[in-house]
Simulated assay, not measured.
Amino acid sequence: MNTLNPQATALSLKQLGYLLAVAETLNFTRAAELCFVTQSTLSGGIAELERTLGVQLVERDRQRVALTPVGVEVAQRAQSILSASRDLVTRAQMAADPASGEFRLGVIPTIAPFILGDLLGCVKNQLPDLVLRVRESQTAALLQELEQGALDAAIIALPIELGKLQAFTLFEEKLRLVAHKNDPMCKGGPVALREVDTRRMLLLEKGHCLRDHTVSACSASQRDTESGENSLVEASSLNTMVQLVNSGLGCALLPDMAIKAGLLNNTEVQIVGLRSPVPSRQIALVTRRSHPKLNFIDRVLCPMFKGDHAN
């Protein structure tokens, strides 16, 4: 296959979706499941796409499935095409009323449990025609889904590299140092973060942005915290980390919203006073600059999502 079919301009978005599923799974069976079609339908769609473009996109035999170099390039471009097509559909459907229809929101795990209840209730009361669908995942996955058009916006913590995405800052949140009540740090007055032995600092597992924020905040104390490799214990969630601190295994930096929500209740974990500067993170709503509801996100959703945290 080396000549461009003159009908290549009539590309099928469905076939491009099939290609992205194959690129993600490198398995025709799982790709078909992702697309809710039979394997034969997906294989036929890929073959038709290859005939339309006049190039081979996928190498497959009984042992392996792989994209050809041109297949990789087409898949990358397909992500942008499908994202733009979703935005186009949304723009057409919501032109009359941006506060109606479906809005897909991603939230990171260190924020979701502490704001979603109030947020969903607020949207239901103030925007009854807006169907808010929420997905909880780590930052990198949410940003990828945003770029691909699978999400409309995401609530994440800054700083982080956003590429072409646009961030609307919602509020700044302090990070609180916590330790077991018998820890020497809980016996005296406020301490400086640089005085904390960072080898005792517990971290979330890799992929959580709070891990990066903790490492960044502590980097002035000891250079070996820059990667967090010296942490002996890594937690999968804030709840697990609090229990580790409660067991006397170390100290941790926790989001202020988590503590206000009662994360330390029924434990012997206490807040350790910190001298200025107190570490913090910026909570932001991130979306695509091309999103058809950009003004609605900025003027309606952002003020609503700030809630009682904006102070």
Rank of each mutant, 00 (worst) to 15 (best):
N2W: 05
T3W: 09
Q7T: 14
Q7L: 15
Q7H: 14
T9M: 06
L11T: 13
L11H: 11
S12Q: 11
G17D: 07
Y18E: 09
L20P: 00
T25G: 02
L26C: 13
F28M: 13
F28L: 15
F28D: 09
T29I: 12
F36V: 06
T41D: 06
L42G: 07
G45Y: 05
E50T: 04
E50S: 10
R51I: 09
T52V: 10
T52Y: 06
V58T: 02
A66H: 10
P69I: 09
R77N: 14
A78V: 05
S80P: 00
I81S: 05
I81E: 02
L82T: 10
L82R: 09
L82A: 07
L88V: 03
V89Q: 00
A92E: 07
M94D: 08
A95N: 05
S100R: 09
G101Y: 00
E102Q: 11
L105D: 00
I108H: 00
G121F: 07
G121P: 01
Q126L: 15
Q126E: 12
P128E: 03
L130T: 07
L130Q: 04
L132N: 04
V134L: 03
R135Y: 02
A140V: 11
L146T: 00
A150R: 12
A154N: 02
I160L: 13
K164A: 13
A167P: 03
T169L: 08
L170A: 08
E172S: 15
E173V: 11
K181L: 11
N182G: 06
N182H: 13
D183K: 12
D183W: 13
C186I: 09
C186H: 10
K187I: 14
G188C: 10
A192I: 04
L193W: 04
E195M: 11
D197C: 09
L204E: 04
H208I: 09
L210H: 03
R211T: 04
H213P: 02
T214K: 00
C218M: 15
A220L: 12
S221C: 13
R223A: 10
D224T: 09
T225E: 01
G228T: 01
G228H: 02
G228R: 02
E229R: 11
N230A: 05
S237E: 06
L238S: 02
N239W: 08
M241G: 04
M241S: 05
V242E: 02
L244S: 03
S247I: 01
L249E: 12
P255H: 06
A261M: 06
L263E: 07
N265C: 05
Q270C: 15
L274M: 10
S280F: 12
T287Q: 01
R289V: 10
S290R: 06
H291P: 03
H291A: 08
H291Q: 05
K293F: 00
I297Y: 01
I297D: 02
R299L: 15
R299T: 15
L301P: 04
L301S: 08
L301Q: 05
C302D: 05
